[in-house]
Design a binder for these strands. Structure first.
Lengths: 144, 144
DNA sequence: AAGACTCGTAACTAAGTAAGTTACATGAAA
DNA sequence: TTTCATGTAACTTACTTAGTTACGAGTCTT
């Protein structure tokens, strides 16, 4: 995994969950989907979706995929989409302060824009695109 | 330095250069400004601004600060502002492909928006803000 | 109540990234 | 020729994150 692919892998997991809404999926099952470790899965989606312990337990989406936007998911991850360095490294340098102030202003405005765009995409949209690709493969295979 | 603070430190260096346009600054001088190493400075701004070797050499802005936008600088760094992971990790997984496609579309659109915003900020703007802060400190010091 | 199952989490290892550092070849001016 | 400065390679160090192992705690079945 490269940097900030947490959103990417979280979405990957969540779309798989959207495909099997009827039942809970264990972190072990999800781990095989994305070729990683159950503990990594738990760490990744902890606090993002509902979980239940014990026999028959696992992970489930709290709501319908149509109601879950990428903006929510991104916000739930608690990471900024624009990982600028805005901590002063030369305290007292007014040039640095001017740079940081400008980038901070930019970041705040930019994140508002990005959140607005992400709020228009839902998990259901991704699931629909998955199905489109699935049908396409099916047709292709048939043709060949 | 934290992640993706290259834009931040590059701007820090460039505003210092904008303050001394009359002459070239050596990487050693710039390094003391931002409390780092001359080699790190050279690596950071190589290809971004003009350089000259030998006696009296150093680094200089190619144009007036009013003509240099943050969008150019960001583009010259050759890094994406949105460091999503969009390389497939589970080749053949259609769910992952759908996620990556959606994030790629989003990233392209988002970067266009961000570049548009950054193109409205110039190095001269940052330098002006620096001077504003400088005057403010001067007044404060006088008052105390 | 016992056993099986699963999350939650701590602790450690491994891998990758980027800054910092040293060293030196190349080019340019005095 | 000497001095100065970039360009760059090679190495070290620090940090972040994935991966792994282990185990406690909660929950369901029998």
């Amino acid at each position: 995994m490269k940097r900030n692919s947490r959103l990417s892998s979280t979405l990957h997991i969540l779309v798989h969950m959207a495909e099997t809404q009827e039942r809970a999926l264990t972190s072990e099952q999800l781990a095989t989907f994305i070729h990683t470790n159950p503990v990594v899965v738990r760490r990744t989606i902890a606090g993002i979706v509902t979980s239940s312990r014990g026999h028959g337990g696992g992970w489930q989406l709290g709501r319908a995929p149509e109601k879950i936007s990428l903006a929510e998911i991104s916000a739930a991850l608690g990471e900024t989409l624009l990982p600028f360095g805005t901590e002063p490294e030369s305290p007292g340098c007014l040039v640095e302060q001017a740079v940081i102030a400008a980038l901070d202003d930019f970041r705040v405005a930019a994140e508002r824009l990005l959140a607005e765009k992400l709020s228009r995409i839902t998990l259901a949209d991704l699931a629909a695109d998955f199905h489109r690709r699935y049908e396409l493969i099916g047709v292709t295979s048939h043709a060949v």
